[in-house]
């Protein structure tokens, strides 16, 4: 899925990283607990979170992620945007809540394995 598709599905605002919207990503995770995100490395490329501090950006960077989505209209600070730009991260912001945002992306096929996709459809 292209990051631009995620933006459309979540009706999200692009905070930074517009130049990477065409990049393809194949999996995502949603959590407010950064240690949990760090515990399960599985090449997730997108982090959805309601937590809003610089450690979110750093966590995404450590995990080689491509995109961070702030749910519930959380607004990243200038410092966070600066860090995100430094590591070529796309930052999106949506009014949707975590559950709905994750559900929509999952239904659209992000992070669904081929066998699961068959079951869903």
């Amino acid at each position: 899925m292209k990051i631009s598709t995620i933006q459309e599905i979540l009706d999200a605002e692009v905070v930074c990283g517009e130049e990477f919207l065409d990049d393809e990503v194949h999996s995502a995770c949603g959590s407010d607990m950064m240690s949990d995100v760090l515990a399960y490395v599985k090449d997730q490329a997108v982090l959805l979170t309601g937590l809003c501090n610089p450690q979110v950006i750093r966590t995404a960077e450590m995990m080689d992620m491509r995109c961070v989505v702030f749910v519930r209209s959380k607004c990243p600070t200038d410092e966070m945007i600066r860090l995100a730009k430094e590591s070529d991260l796309v930052v999106l912001k949506t009014t949707k809540r975590m559950y709905e945002a994750c559900g929509k992306l999952y239904l659209a096929g992000l992070g669904v394995s081929p066998t699961e996709a068959k079951a869903v459809n």
Binding site: D32, M33, S35, A39, V41, T49, L51, Q55, V56, T59
Partner: peptide, 16 residues
């Protein structure tokens, strides 16, 4: 509330 302190730090360090 900052996203840490869940008791995963040391286990994660060992894991990786």
């Amino acid at each position: 509330s900052l996203g840490f302190g869940a008791g995963m730090g040391l286990p994660n360090m060992k894991r990786y």
